[in-house]
Design a protein around this nucleic acid. Sequence first.
DNA 1: GTCTATACAAAGATAGAC
DNA 2: GTCTATCTTTGTATAGAC
Lengths: 210, 210
Amino acid sequence: MTSETKKPERLTRIQRENRTRIREAALEAFSRNGFRGTTLDQIATLSSLSKPNLIYYYKSKEDIYLELFVSLLDQWLEPLVALNIEGDPIEEILSYVRVKLALSRDKPRESRLFANEVLRGCPRIAWFIKKDLKNVVEEVEAKFQHWIDEGKIAAINPRHLLYSIWAVTQHYADFESQITLLQPNKHETFAEAEIYVEQLFRGILTPRNA
Amino acid sequence: MTSETKKPERLTRIQRENRTRIREAALEAFSRNGFRGTTLDQIATLSSLSKPNLIYYYKSKEDIYLELFVSLLDQWLEPLVALNIEGDPIEEILSYVRVKLALSRDKPRESRLFANEVLRGCPRIAWFIKKDLKNVVEEVEAKFQHWIDEGKIAAINPRHLLYSIWAVTQHYADFESQITLLQPNKHETFAEAEIYVEQLFRGILTPRNA
DNA sequence: GTCTATACAAAGATAGAC
DNA sequence: GTCTATCTTTGTATAGAC
């Protein structure tokens, strides 16, 4: 715990600003072009810094890339672990769906960054999937199963429920370019999506007895 | 119509075989690494042909890439246009869902190839989305709307229904690496998925009166 | 038709001046 | 801390022998 990593603390204002500008530029580039498709020149141009200066702040291209995942994964896991087993099951789940859809609307680049990595077989974040994400997923699955056992939601496969929530919500970020080409008005798309996804998941979650 | 393109006809057996081997190798590489991430060396190694020989058969890397999309897009559109407006609406739609899910299981590379391209903003296939796909989508939307008007399926947004079918089914191909890291048994995953997606879409399609 | 050798450009990273 | 110049590697594509 004796600060082996020197990154977070004791940075000048300029250092903090520059690192932030680099991350912003890198997110823009990596999310659109993937790791291999992104060049340090692009990041340098977008951040208005020189290429060597980038390497002064981050020791390699991969270093910048990996740092972007830290904040992304935090953001994505937080609402998942927040699922409250004491709350109303359907409202808890729908609330998670809404958060995730809002993330697709407001932070689509983060979603595309993740999709890029997974499409390639998770070469750089497999460690995270196997440990942290797997644990969280199993906890969530247990909560869903608990609600199923109590008859509060329909008897469905809890894991695939989670997959389909991810799939449907992230689709609006990851396939944004396709959607835009088919239907140019982004605001309208998300307004419709909010209504639709609620119907979709309410439809499968609602128990079929009463 | 006077054969300007010399590709299809009049090829020797060796030429046909080599072109096929190149396409197979290119699909493997492009689907995993994207356009920029794929090198001619990789394709050459995978196809057991020399790099210059590749360029003998296809005039450029991009040429190989584009040809892969032709067969992919055919495959994807065919079951969409086959939606029969005379058939039972819910069964017609569920049947399309099953076909699409089977494509994710049996041809995941094609799905990833497409996802890669769309993630990057469709730089090379925007023309196709804006013309062919847009037309097909509008036809499908009209069929869905017709069924809604007749009260045979629930009143939902037809376009987002289509998006969610794509999202959920393609997720099993595009995010296969994530799913495998979370749950190694592929066969089991698809067996569960078949049941789940049917429940999911039946849930939203079934009218809420009777 | 297929290969070896190579031209030419782009990209990641470093050296060293300021 | 930041820049110019440069090293090194890799990648697309071509030339020309066989």
